[in-house]
Design a protein around this nucleic acid. Sequence first.
RNA 1: GUGGGUGUAGCUCAGCUGGUUAGAGUAUCAGGUUGUGGCCCUGAGGGUCGUCGGUUCGAGUCCGAUCUCCCACC
Length: 377
Amino acid sequence: MAFKLLKQDGAARRGVFRTVHGTVQTPVFMNVGTSAAIKGGVSTDDLREIRCQVELSNTYHLHVRPGDDLIHRMGGLHRFFNWDRPILTDSGGFQVFSLAQLRNIREEGVQFQSHMDGAPVFMSPEVSMRIQSNLASTIAMALDECPSSVAEHGYIDRSCDRTVRWLYRCREELTRLNALPDTINPHQMLFGINQGGIYTDLRVRHMKQIAELDLDGYAIGGLAVGETAEEMYRVIEEVEPFMPSDRPRYLMGVGTPLNILEAVDRGVDFFDCVLPSRNARHGNLFTSEGLLNLNNRKFAEDPLPLDPACDCPACRRYSRAYIRHLFKAREMLAMRLCVLHNLYFYNRLMEQIRDALDGGYWKSFKAEAVERLGRRV
RNA sequence: GUGGGUGUAGCUCAGCUGGUUAGAGUAUCAGGUUGUGGCCCUGAGGGUCGUCGGUUCGAGUCCGAUCUCCCACC
């Protein structure tokens, strides 16, 4: 079994996940590099230095540019990207619904226009699996429809049924692809995605249906897209009892450090979010003392590092005043240093969470961290 | 020196024949950002309308003088 549960405290889980690209310690935060690059000029050497375990790239983006067939010819994403640890590829489903202007969704798949040049693109369960097989990521995500979490019950009901049918097609196609002789990663794993908006009956029914497929892991999708944090926590609590306990659980696209602490407490093992990297590019830092907006004038002559308690490459050598200056001067080093810091902060937060679970002091750590990280510097 | 143009927010500029509390973009300041388009969204502060005088119930707007800068010609 790839996933092994080491310890549990309430619903919170401490585990290890074995893959062909190495073992992942969970709970884990995956560092997002959509186009096989962490935005902000961060290299894979940097990723190793900031203690990244799993990198996440995007099927849709890499399909549009440079093309998954090209990456296959270049030996797969790991060789192309120079990253030998696990990679998870998102299926492209979310992008179809968040980026595409014009789309037409049918049973067969989704026809839409590329956000790059308007060229027609067709995405189906089979196409998504073929792209991800070409990329040869460690973990492939199933193609799902991601409707607005607050869409009406009737629509999400029908959408969930279609996502189940798509999931069967994904598994069948990936099984076929993994057996082909020119497949780069014949052990590519598949995670299914739970949908159902904010409706308990749909979430539970859908989770039960996809659990029957006995996949390598299960994700909760369609959250943090309009509903409140409290609704998100409620949905996790309601669906968690129906998620296989011997498989990793992945909460897609979440979230803030507080969201992650609350979700770990409700049994989630995997996370990914653009928040630390995107906010970093705009000067919004996560620190051990809470949120810090480096654009604030009060940091103009502040000689302290971004976070005095941090030993990331940015905090070891540079002051708030200097990095703030870099932002005002629009120097790209500003973004690089802040992205390194925020990702390191997230990766270190996950280490602290794992230490707390290992050490048996999860509840007290969580309560203290929620209070501390919710502050503002 | 002569003729023409110009002057309004830190910057670039709107402001129709005179009419509520002078606007926009950008910059600044402060929020937001959740399966990534270095984007975008929201709010705030900021002006003796070059200066002085005149006409008028009322002037950024009309008149006179003066100063600034730009252009052309001598």
